[in-house]
């Protein structure tokens, strides 16, 4: 088996304030590995956006992170309502977040586009009323 570190987090769906704990923890782990700040920044932002998405749209979910010698893989999976139109969801500024959530400063429609922007590969699998799984990869150069 390839040498790696696996990290597993449960993202609490009720908790806006502590949202970002998983990305914070991943960041710390990456620092202890001496990974460059550019890579850490990419991972931290992509993961933070993903966490926020799961809290806003899916009542929380699971984050699994694998750190390998050449890459970091992040899998975010939730049992939420799913994404109806993935292509639309990828557009900047498009959001289905409620007014209440927007008032909290979230739901600007930048989540998925930012995740795509900061990662080297991203795939979305989603089924309506079943859930969404997003797999992201950031290469370590």
């Amino acid at each position: 088996m390839e040498d790696c570190i696996k990290l597993h987090y449960v993202v609490d769906g009720q908790d806006f304030v502590s949202c970002g704990r998983a990305s914070e923890d991943v960041k710390r782990t990456l620092k202890s590995l001496g990974i460059s700040s550019q890579v850490i920044r990419k991972v931290a932002i992509a993961m933070y956006e993903g966490e926020v998405n799961m809290v806003i749209h899916a009542d929380g979910g699971i984050a699994d992170v694998g750190i390998y010698a050449d890459r970091i893989e992040i899998v975010l999976s939730d049992k939420g309502k799913g994404i109806a139109d993935i292509e639309k969801a990828m557009q900047e500024g498009y959001s289905t977040a409620t007014e209440e959530i927007r008032e909290l400063g979230f739901g600007a429609g930048m989540g998925l586009p930012n995740m795509k922007k900061y990662t080297d590969d991203m795939t979305i699998e989603s089924e309506l009323n079943v859930g969404t799984t997003i797999t992201m990869r950031v290469n370590i150069v």
Binding site: D3, C4, I5, T29, K31, S32, L33, G34, I67, A69
Partner: peptide
């Protein structure tokens, strides 16, 4: 905060 200069070693330690 880096644990080791060698990545594989740092990976084990982390």
């Amino acid at each position: 905060y880096k644990l080791h200069n060698n990545f594989m070693e740092a990976l084990k330690m982390t």
